[in-house]
């Protein structure tokens, strides 16, 4: 418990900054919705403009399959970026929290206390999990507060809840990915960069596979594609099978984190 509190304290400032950024990201993103729907005096609405764009360009920006004229459709687009932010946070946090003792040279302090390495990993992962939950809740609440300000008509809280739930699973995947990299790599300090590298690769895979159906098999390596945002904004909820598979992946990464961390020669 003492170690969990220490980790929470150590990450508190960063958590506040990420939370505020997340809120601003949701706010500014949602404000732009009006630009997509209203035809201005100088030209057509963006939705009409989009129709004239080639599919590959639309795919690159994530517009491919959503109806921008509805708040739900627009949300699915905005959510790609929100999810990206949350995933970066999770990956950096997972890598950082495990690598920290070695990069801050506090290994000799902590690892000579009468606690097992497993207990240390558990405390760190619990603290990281709480951080990720906070970011997720902040995202959910931000959407629930901001959307009614700009969306006329039907309530889409249900869809928002589904989206943030799917985002939570994606966060867990990247959190455990960061952690396992930090536990496995010879130089854990660089695990954050590697984790974000993997993340951006996954992100671009997600964009590229939108271009052509032939590339869809690549989606398996991109957690950003595990959940079909279009399906969720259509009110169809989460695919239970995929949720379970994703959680199995998280469990595998977490288990490996313990194995690698226990075996490693700590850098001092």
């Amino acid at each position: 418990m003492n170690m969990v509190l220490r980790e929470l304290k150590a990450s508190s400032r960063a958590l506040i900054i990420w939370s505020v950024s997340m809120f601003l990201c949701v706010l500014t993103g949602t404000i732009k919705f009006t630009a997509y729907t209203t035809a201005t005096s100088t030209g057509p609405s963006i939705n009409e403009l989009l129709k004239t764009m080639p599919t590959s360009i639309k795919a690159l920006f994530g517009f491919a399959s959503f109806d921008m004229a509805t708040m739900a459709g627009y949300l699915a687009l905005l959510f790609i970026y929100v999810e990206l932010v949350a995933a970066i946070h999770a990956a950096l946090l997972g890598a950082g929290i495990i690598a920290k003792e070695e990069s801050d040279k506090t290994t000799e302090y902590l690892m000579t206390k009468p606690v097992s390495r497993a207990a240390i990993v558990t405390s760190k992962l619990v603290a990281a999990l709480l951080n990720v939950v906070v970011i997720n809740v902040v995202t959910l609440v931000s959407f629930l507060v901001v959307i009614p300000l700009y969306s006329k008509g039907n309530d889409i809280s249900g869809e928002v809840l589904m989206l943030t739930l799917s985002m939570f699973v994606v966060q867990l995947i990247f959190l455990s990915l960061g952690a396992v990299l930090a536990a496995w790599m010879r130089h854990p300090r660089t695990s954050g960069s590697v984790a974000t590298g993997v993340l951006f690769t996954a992100y671009f895979v997600a964009r590229i596979t939108d271009m052509s159906d032939k590339l869809r098999f690549l989606n398996v390596i991109s957690p950003f594609k595990y959940f079909d945002l279009g399906r969720m904004v259509a009110g169809n909820g989460l695919n239970t099978g995929i949720v379970l598979l994703s959680l199995a992946l998280v469990a595998a990464f977490t288990a490996l984190t313990y194995v690698f961390y226990q075996k490693r020669d700590l850098n001092i």
Partner: peptide, 9 residues
């Protein structure tokens, strides 16, 4: 244990 170089949080 007192390490040769001390580092803290």
């Amino acid at each position: 244990y007192l390490p040769s170089e001390v580092f803290y949080y």
